[in-house]
């Protein structure tokens, strides 16, 4: 589904990713771990099409297409979803209307008719219940005045409604207490399916107690320094990131 080859990415001429290789197949859940500044969030944003980053080398294929050529909105319509680490507040735009626009943009792209209002509301309320969210959050402006936990739940709510093919979850566990984490993880687990791939970006292995990944990758100095199964996350929990970083060599080395 997703094929990343030798991906190099800079922000303002400062290299952040220095040669990422990663293959994610349908049905798989991958965890990208790593210390702060290792480039985890950059990877998620580049895949979603954020324009603040410059791809200086490498390629990304998604469902056989050159992903980097697509605008962010086309990527979304092609089934990519980024759950933001810091969901953006959009005063004046009600949550439910953004959801509706997003759903209909997808359906239009696939040549499907728009959902009628009743079906749409039924779909949203169903997912709302799954996320343990109050209905009134639908009618408030997107993320405005939401607590940290509400924002994260709202991201997973959007994901549940949009049913992406490839979900990128950026530090979805950060700032959540244990109960909220369970709800969010429950929402994500409910979406695991053989047709869908997920990439979880996380600093801590805590999230992986609830969402068990098929593969774990450790990012250090802009490269995948180590890959393994779920047990790798547990090892990182015990030993920290220092030994991986040391093994990855000094920052600034060539790819």
């Amino acid at each position: 589904m997703l094929d990343i080859r030798n991906l190099h990415v800079s922000i303002n001429d400062k290299p952040i990713l220095r040669g990422i290789d990663l293959t994610v197949r349908a049905g798989e859940v991958h965890a990208i771990m790593g210390p702060n500044g290792s480039g985890k969030s950059t990877l998620a944003h580049v895949l979603a099409g954020h324009e603040g980053y410059t791809v200086t080398a490498g390629e990304v294929r998604y469902l056989g297409r050159n992903l980097l050529e697509l605008s962010p909105e086309l990527r979304a319509r092609e089934g990519i979803f980024l759950a933001f680490q810091y969901p953006v507040e959009i005063p004046g735009v009600a949550n439910i209307y953004l959801l509706k626009a997003a759903v209909n943009a997808l359906r239009q792209h696939r040549g499907e008719p728009e959902l009628d209002a009743v079906d749409f509301l039924a779909l949203v309320k169903d997912k709302l219940k799954l996320m343990g969210m109050d209905t009134d959050l639908l009618y408030r402006s997107v993320n405005e005045g939401f607590s940290g936990g509400e924002k994260k739940r709202n991201e997973i709510l959007q994901m549940a409604v949009l049913e992406p093919r490839l979900a990128l979850l950026d530090e979805t566990d950060s700032g959540l207490d244990i109960d909220a984490l369970k709800v969010v993880a429950g929402g994500v687990n409910a979406m695991r399916s053989p047709e869908r791939a997920m990439v979880l970006v996380t600093h801590y292995q805590r999230l992986l107690n609830y969402i068990v990944p098929d593969q774990v990758h450790v990012l250090a100095q802009g490269r995948i320094a180590l890959s393994g199964g779920r047990e790798l996350a547990l090892e990182l929990e015990n030993r920290g990131y220092g030994w991986v970083e040391a093994a990855a060599g000094p920052a600034g080395g060539g790819a």
Binding site: A48, G49, H50, E51, S71, P72, E73, R75, A76, R77, F81, L82, F84, P87, V88, E89, I90, P91, G92, V93, L98, A101, A102, A105, L106, H109, S141, V142, Q158, L162
Partner: peptide
């Protein structure tokens, strides 16, 4: 960041800008 957020949900860039201006 607001523009990107809306686009990442499938909203056209021009529409996202118009919407944020309206808001």
């Amino acid at each position: 960041e607001q523009v990107f957020y809306l686009r990442s949900r499938g909203v056209d860039e021009a529409d996202a800008r118009a919407l944020l201006t309206f808001a």
